[in-house]
Each structure stands twice: as structure tokens, then as C-alpha cells.
């Protein structure tokens, strides 16, 4: 489902080039769940950005479901994301001007789904927020906001779900509930899950654990 080869990312800084990722080779199969763990600044988020096609690599390539990202331009990558990829972010990234329901509808509308309203309602039901449908993000708690974000991510039934520190902004109890919800939906839809975290207990729930260290990725033993 996801394959990378020689994936390298360098950025220019005042002190010369800085290599953030160093020739990463990775393969994640359909339906697998994989956690990328590592210290802050180890390059986890950079790798996630590249895998999801949000950023472009300096060298190497990412192949998603048979499509090489290096051969796509920004707009083609966007279409690929609309088609196959969902996200859950640490800071939720809900649009403050939209209600919970409208936030969930957004990716459905972007991919031109005709029944976006009904599907969004269904997914809000499934994350237990049907009562909060018309609330704006600022009137929802952190846990509720993340549940909206999860509903949004699964509503478009993606092949791959990328989650970036999904519990990073939540307390332990809420975080645990969110993770349960995430894995339940993941199992139900058979989604490939790539999760970035520094929470080892969360990482342990994934089928594979990958450790990021100084720009290199290793399978945890």
C-alpha cells in the first residue's frame, strides 16, 4: 500500500544544508497498522508529511497504492489525497467557521459526493456526537473536537489514515477513548493506519512499531 525507497529530505538553513531524513526504505501493506515513534525533532512529522504527499522529498520516492508521488504535481497529489487518504491531527484542524456537521461534510463535498450530508450525519452518530452536530468547534471540548476530526477522516472512507499525535492535546482518559474509537473504526473499514506518536503504549496497539532516530528509521525489535 505504501512503499518508499531512498527517501531523503534536506532543508537549507543558515548553517548549511540539514538532512532530516536519510534514505528511508519502508513498506506498509494494506490493512496494516504502523506506529512511528521517536523523540521530538527526530523527523517523524517530516516523514508523515512525505508519506501523505503533503510535502515533496529531496531524493527518493513514495508509492501509494501503485502511484508514484514523485510523478505527480501538487494538484494531482491533492486529488490522490481526496481519493485515498484521511488525516487526524494533534491540533484537530477543524475549521472554526464551520459547524461539526459541516466540518465532516467538507472532504465529502470536495470529492463531489452527492450524499455528503447523510454520510456526515451517520459518521457523527458513530462517534457519538449526533447531539452536537450544529455546534462550532469553539464550543466543543478537546475530546469532542478530536471525535469530529475522526468522523471527518473516516467519512470519506480512505484507504490510508495518517494520524499525527492524535492524543497529544488530550488528557489520558479522553485520549484512551479517542484511541479506542480510532482503532474500532479502523478495524471496521480495514483502513491502513500510520500513526505518529511518542506514546509507547499507544504505539504498542499497532501491528508494527518503527523507531525514528536521527533521520533514520528502524523496525522495533
Amino acid at each position: 500500500m505504501i512503499t518508499t525507497s531512498q527517501l531523503t529530505k534536506r532543508v537549507s538553513t543558515a548553517d548549511g544544508d540539514l538532512e532530516i531524513l536519510r534514505g528511508i526504505a519502508l513498506e506498509i501493506k494494506r490493512g496494516e497498522t504502523a506506529a512511528i515513534v521517536g523523540a521530538s525533532g527526530s523527523g517523524k512529522s517530516t516523514l508523515l508529511g512525505l508519506l501523505a504527499g503533503l510535502d515533496v522529498s529531496t531524493e527518493g520516492d513514495v508509492v501509494i497504492d501503485g502511484t508514484s508521488l514523485a510523478s505527480l504535481d501538487e494538484d494531482e497529489r491533492a486529488l490522490l489525497r481526496a481519493d485515498k487518504i484521511g488525516f487526524v491531527f494533534q491540533s484537530f484542524q477543524l475549521l472554526p467557521a464551520l459547524t461539526a456537521l459541516e466540518n465532516v461534510m467538507l472532504p465529502l463535498e470536495l470529492s463531489g459526493a452527492s450524499d455528503s450530508d447523510q454520510r456526515a450525519r451517520d459518521f457523527l452518530d458513530r462517534v457519538g456526537l449526533s447531539e452536537r452536530r450544529d455546534h462550532y468547534p469553539r464550543t466543543l471540548s478537546g475530546g469532542e473536537q478530536q471525535r469530529v476530526a475522526i468522523a471527518r477522516a473516516f467519512a470519506s472512507e480512505p484507504l490510508i489514515l495518517f494520524a499525527d499525535e492524535p492524543t497529544g492535546n488530550l488528557d489520558t482518559a479522553t485520549g484512551a477513548k479517542i484511541i479506542d474509537l480510532l482503532f474500532a473504526l479502523n478495524t471496521e473499514q480495514g483502513t491502513t493506519l500510520v500513526l505518529v506518536t511518542h506514546d509507547m503504549s499507544l504505539a504498542a496497539r499497532c501491528g508494527r512499531q518503527l523507531v525514528m532516530q536521527a533521520g533514520e528509521l528502524e523496525e522495533a525489535s
Binding site: 491533492a78 489525497r81 481526496a82 481519493d83 472532504p107 470519506s156
Partner: peptide, 13 residues
């Protein structure tokens, strides 16, 4: 920020 979110969700430029 809104546009970044929309693009991450698959909106083209």
C-alpha cells in the same frame, strides 16, 4: 489555515 486543511483533505489549487 483553512485552505491548508482543505488541501490536506484533497482540494486542488
Amino acid at each position: 489555515d483553512h485552505v491548508a486543511v482543505m488541501k490536506s483533505l484533497g482540494a486542488t489549487s
